[in-house]
Design a protein around this nucleic acid. Structure first.
Lengths: 202, 202, 202, 202
DNA sequence: TATGAATGAGTATTCATTCAT
DNA sequence: CATGAATGAATACTCATTCAT
């Protein structure tokens, strides 16, 4: 095999491992993840895992981080020309709607207690300035809205965190209470946004 | 032993098992729970557990349900004579402040993925009329506030769920982001309530 | 089963475990000892070992300590009426002769690097006064010999250690050089004692 | 590459392997030796080892043999002009003092049970005539001493073995009882030599 | 010559669970 | 009612070794 092909093979294998791990976590929860299980599902033997990951916890952590990243990055683009309040509303709604298509996946990755992983997903503790931040777009919408006189002037960092965590609360409850009907969910979302927007509008 | 005494003994033992299980979960997390561990700590041997619980998962589930219930019921009484908005504010704040004293305990019980458990803790899906409901006091405050002209008329069931889940979102994030300072937390709480109250006030 | 019978059974099992461990060490060396191997040889499954020993190292340590103890206690009694120099000579010779009957066993238990075990077998570091000490009889013979004018006056503690370690040196070499003939061994022993005795005699 | 260069390269690599193995044994004990570990430390991959050694046990055995040889040969030169008894005393003392600087290293190589290795390190079984022998210098000192009338006439081969093994006994005990203070050690050495010399002196 | 990939056999240890007593 | 004994099935992990390349 040529070097390049070997490399490609290697990368591919690593990916298969990660994807398999993610799938297991997603389908059966984080406790169902075991090195041997992953190995078996990719038709290899256990030691091969250790060529790519130092130990199980590293595998777990990589898998969950990636899974979480995929989730947060899955925001659908909003159409241009929306007012800030409309855009806030729509981006939150998009996010939740997408999550509800595969709630168990979201559950598996959101409900993590490991402090290492929680650090990765921090929201309240970070400044929203960083590009990668989940808060960035909320902040920019708030700023624009204030400039436009739609929103009352306020501490945008703080307010963004408040809006985001309020939204997260509804998101979380919808996630763990899957028996809520789409219709009911719609009403909750609607009212939720009305309250929040009512609280920040001029 | 008389029947009654046996029964009493039996109940007591079951309770000790449950309490021990809860303490272990609380102190060392759900993964630290093992049948033998519980048995040892109550000075019995493992098989007794099976007289009260079908298997480990039933024990776990009972323990967590009860633990969760205790958490949600742990609201401190609010002083009389408060206006509805003040009372809402204060009862939420009390709840969060108490949780922050032992965040790890709360984390242990809140971050449970098992669908069986999640069903038990449902909020959005239930009507708030039931006495035991977490929502009951929120609803009654909303109703009073509307009567008094403090809040805008609205669907109180729906609004209560919205307020509660927004609060829960902040609560959850504070729980999993323990590096937030008390001062910062205070600011977040303050702003959170301002936004929500702003959204429902007349 | 009655309590007593259970107890007896339990003790018996523990003994079988220990003996099996000792046999394995003896026959194949300390590295050949494994929990599963022991379990298999007594026709049980591995976990049963853990009912008697905290972990493998405890099992190993118990087995080796007992083995070593058996060795040191295996001194044959010397006939009465010997002079101190004769008794020293004979007790050393007895010890070595017995060891040479099953050198591999002695090798297995003497050549231990674990500091925990070495502590058990300390000779130079201890005072010879303790009853259990290997040195006790050497010391008493030296003292008697000095009184009788056979040996030169000296620091008996020190001298006992010197004699013992010199003897141990020959013992050790004979142990690890099994191709030495009985005849040659006899000559070495003879000369060894002559030199030592020559060095301490009046 | 020319044949010669290849050969040189090859030899060099083999040496690096052996030295690395010895260092590992010396620093962390014989159980820490693993094929992959050696390979990694010389910046190669595991399979190269098998070009030079049939299997791990051969590598181990080579490494230990060489290490043991280095130890025994590590005698510091004694100053000229010493009498034979002084020279014996000093060379033994030098040897032990050097060993005590890094007792763990000596322990690692001395405490080997493998019969294959033990054969290599034979002392009692060999004639001391061979040049490489550990005994050679003892023998020559004895002979000189006898000629000079310092020592009693005797079988020098036999006596050399006796002296050496007695010395080895003390050496060994000092090695495995590391809590002995330098001062105490000095006293033991002194008395040891006095006894031995007393036994062979005219 | 050297390697990356892969494996099979092994390690200690833990646990939930059962059953005769 | 409670237990001691025992097990079977997992677990993560390590290692020597092989082989095609």
């Amino acid at each position: 095999m040529s070097r390049a092909r070997q490399k490609r093979h290697s990368d591919e294998l690593r990916n298969r491992i990660l994807e398999t791990a993610q799938r297991i976590i997603l389908e059966e929860g984080v406790d169902a993840l075991s090195v041997r299980r992953v190995a078996k599902e990719i038709d290899y033997t256990a030691p091969v895992i250790y060529q790519f990951f130092r130990d199980k916890s590293q595998l777990l952590s990589c898998a969950v981080k990636e899974g979480y990243r995929k989730i947060l990055e899955s925001a659908a683009p909003t159409p241009a020309g929306l007012t800030p309040d409309e855009e806030l509303r729509m981006s939150f709604k998009n996010f939740i709607d997408r999550a509800m298509l595969i709630p168990s996946a979201y559950r598996a990755f959101i409900l993590q207690t490991s402090s290492e992983l929680l650090a990765e997903t921090s929201v309240l503790g970070k400044d929203g300035d960083e590009k990668s931040s989940t808060l960035a777009s909320v902040i920019s919408n708030l700023e624009t809205g204030i400039e436009m006189g739609i929103f009352k002037p306020c501490d945008v960092q703080l307010t963004a965190k408040v809006c985001w965590s309020a939204m997260f609360g509804l998101f979380f409850r919808l996630l763990v209470e899957p028996e809520i009907s789409a219709e009911e969910r719609e009403k909750l979302l609607q009212r939720h946004f009305d309250v929040i927007m009512g609280g920040i509008s001029a």
